[in-house]
Design a protein around this nucleic acid. Structure first.
Length: 172
DNA sequence: GCCAACGTTGGC
DNA sequence: GCCAACGTTGGC
């Protein structure tokens, strides 16, 4: 929530960073989905669940981050096209993300749908981030941080786009 | 492959 | 409610 008074709707937009292991689900996997859209399922962490269920809204911007590889990096942009709804993979005994405690009435786990927007012409690596004063403080850079969905400030979002040499997809 | 950091579980 | 044990994440 911005404290700066602004009648522009863009002031309502929030920004997030979402991690994915590209061996599991990469940015190009997202791009190749129908409509470039995919449910962000399988999150099994309560802090991230709360964000998915309560805070992440349609139209929010997403930095797509590849983790657990030799060069972890922000690789692209996405946006939220459907707000928090029950993650049905928790109910599926055949799913890797099955949770026997989850029921239709009490789903426990939630997800959002994200849609591909753009790939960065060059990934922004952790080294790049660490050398940028405005980005070195990002949550993803903190040692031991393993939140797979985490908030990003508008300033960080803009700094990433500036570094990437891209126009903000949300500005006209 | 190593290992530090973290979240969760479960005994008490 | 405490806390040790454990499993997982994820950078390096």
């Amino acid at each position: 929530m911005s404290i700066i008074k602004d009648s522009d709707e863009s002031a309502e937009r929030n920004y997030w960073l979402m991690k994915s292991e590209p061996n599991c689900f990469s940015l190009s996997d997202l791009k190749n989905r129908p409509e470039g859209t995919e449910p962000w399922d399988g999150v099994r962490n309560y802090q991230a669940r709360n964000l998915l269920r309560d805070d992440i809204k349609c139209g929010d911007g997403v930095l797509f981050y590849h983790s657990n590889i030799s060069q972890p990096a922000i690789v692209g942009l996405a946006h939220v096209v459907r707000e928090g709804y029950p993650d049905h993979t928790a109910l599926d005994p055949g799913s890797d993300h099955f949770d026997p405690r989850a029921t239709e009435a009490k789903p426990i786990w939630y997800m959002v749908d994200v849609q591909y927007l753009a790939s960065l012409s060059a990934p922004i690596t952790r080294r790049d981030l660490s050398q940028h004063p405005g980005l070195a403080t990002m949550g993803v850079m903190k040692k031991g941080n393993r939140l797979s969905v985490q908030p990003v400030t508008q300033g960080q979002w803009q700094a990433v786009l500036l570094l990437a040499g891209m126009d903000d997809p949300f500005t006209v």
